[in-house]
Design a binder for these strands. Sequence first.
DNA 1: TGACTATATGAGTTTATGCGCATATAGTCA
DNA 2: TGACTATATGCGCATAAACTCATATAGTCA
Lengths: 121, 121
Amino acid sequence: MNEIDEIFGEVAQYFSVMSEPTRLKIIHAICQAERTVTEIVEATGSTQSNISRHLNLMHRHGLLSRRREGNQIYYQMADDTMTELCRTACNRIASRIDDRRPMKRQLARLMPPPGKRTVRA
Amino acid sequence: MNEIDEIFGEVAQYFSVMSEPTRLKIIHAICQAERTVTEIVEATGSTQSNISRHLNLMHRHGLLSRRREGNQIYYQMADDTMTELCRTACNRIASRIDDRRPMKRQLARLMPPPGKRTVRA
DNA sequence: TGACTATATGAGTTTATGCGCATATAGTCA
DNA sequence: TGACTATATGCGCATAAACTCATATAGTCA
């Protein structure tokens, strides 16, 4: 039974990475294409320090990959399973909210799949 | 942009429900068939008070449904999306762990789909 | 080299949450 | 009714996690 405890511990950690609005915003910001920290800071409206911490955490958990280009660092989604979980959950919640109060635009677009160019100049 | 904030808040809550080992154990205990609180307490090895809180939280979030039968209360999974998310995440983590240290039995069985009789006498 | 930009991190504060203990509520059965 | 079983909950503690502020590190360009 101890092995199972270990797995549930790790699964809980896995979910906990996504249980934070700021981190979901980060994913929202980079799920289509890689972005620099500064771009993510602007997209999320949070502070540089805060975003940097979240990015590091997500990177440590294997969610994001990063590459340096000169002065800046590009972050990108690196865990397809997680990306898919987010999409599923967002659709679920969006439709639930939509039941209470219909929305104009479809919210499935919250976690859009990546376009052609995921690596940018 | 405020609508999006609201959704990310709710999605984060949605994930946070699963970001707790005890709650994952609860799902593990009831994902095949409904169980009473006492049964869940025994299956998880936690205390009655603690499990009761978790069950209530999960019920408030729409994850579980419950029905009373005499003295006892049967809890059951009520959110197919969440059940599926758990299955996906468990498989993901199990295979990741398996990469580090191969396991005897397949861990996909951690979150088995319900059998024929999900409602018991 | 020094000035500048981009990113990371240490320290401290605040808030959220899981847990245990004791107790309350609700149902059953004699 | 009273004794018993099953489940829920108020309260307090301990820990974890997010955030801010200030500062450190790393790269670029003149």
